[in-house]
Design a protein around this nucleic acid. Sequence first.
DNA 1: TGTGGGTTTATTGTATACAATTCCTTCTCG
DNA 2: CGAGAAGGAATTGTATACAATAAACCCACA
Lengths: 226, 226
Amino acid sequence: MSRASDRAFDTIRSMIVSGELSPGEQLIEEALAERCGVSRTPVRDALRRLESDMLVQRNDTQRTFVADWSLDDVADVFELRAMLEGHAAKLAAERMDDAALERLRKCNSALRAAVKSSPPDIDLFLELNREFHALILKVASSPRLATLLATLIEQPVIWRTAHHYSADELVRSSAEHDELLAAFARKDGAWAQSVMSGHIRRAYHAYADAHHGLTAIDAADRKRRA
Amino acid sequence: MSRASDRAFDTIRSMIVSGELSPGEQLIEEALAERCGVSRTPVRDALRRLESDMLVQRNDTQRTFVADWSLDDVADVFELRAMLEGHAAKLAAERMDDAALERLRKCNSALRAAVKSSPPDIDLFLELNREFHALILKVASSPRLATLLATLIEQPVIWRTAHHYSADELVRSSAEHDELLAAFARKDGAWAQSVMSGHIRRAYHAYADAHHGLTAIDAADRKRRA
DNA sequence: TGTGGGTTTATTGTATACAATTCCTTCTCG
DNA sequence: CGAGAAGGAATTGTATACAATAAACCCACA
């Protein structure tokens, strides 16, 4: 997309991710257009893209809403991620070369440093974690898999809440990355797959532990609105 | 989408699936608009949807082309399908109820009849096969999984060529469905997953056997064009 | 009350004109 | 000849006006 459409996409996306627009809220094309400073045409484009990223949903009559996630939905996504990223790790292990491995090592070193500083630099952690997983996906070199995963890993429910991870959990993350690196070094696809799958599943439980209180409130709130 | 956009989507889609538009061919919005009898606006909508279905691709400057699939791409898709449909089968087995099981049985009976008639009714087979898999996906009740799979199972490379299946392969398909039904009846998720995964992988090899000659020609043709 | 039908308003869908970009041809200069 | 720039043609992007549809409202009537 070109300038206006991109701006609309970025603006709306950040409004959703930041929580400025709350889950379940209806999105009006004209209002968004005004806020983004563009016409409705690029806004409609942006909404299409956000829909395929599962950040917004449409009802049966084409009205658009900020995606609303139940805890079950989140569990669903993590399970699929565990499966697909596990597969990606397997492919990556089989196709790993020295240069890529070196980049992954550097990435995880930086990540560990971010985690070990006090206080831990969460934003940097997120950035490097993202890069680490992106590198693996690149080495896996399956464009279709990349497409499928892209829609799963860009979910705001996850990013918005990563700040609740405990220091311990952050350290464990980088340790799991180390184990992945070991599997990659041996080109052991099955090992890499197991580690990655576990890595994602642990992340899910960290999320669920931090949020089951919150989601209970959300559920009540949702009920009230209905 | 409403009428015009749907018509554009259906029209363009069928032109791609039927081969009227060949892989790699550029799609011009205005030309498509004229052919569909609508303006460019709904055509652009349709192209977005076709893009997310992976039926068309865009280059770096926003030009749109009919998706072009190498044999590796096809292998890639089948592998992902095997994984995701296997997972769907596992979930479905765990959540299966008598009513759904009965519908699946009826569906496969009809499918078997279509296969056993002479000559086998391939179109009916495809229709019922689709329905069978859709029912399983429905019982699995994971909307996210359904979304991901939707983009994989609607691929024209597969449908356009299903007519090359041998009678023997068609019969084997319905036999594998029977085995799935057995796994469902016992609510054995792991069994269902294995059978489904194998089912898809066998389909891939049937495809590859029928097409490795053809794809060699395709490759030469593609080279000539380049 | 509260329920059905019709009217009004809000919102999305479509067509069209024009702007911006990309692509292709051609010409110049080395 | 070849590389690269300039101009023109083809294509996509954006804004805007209007049409179609869905939601909200209101009021008569039971």
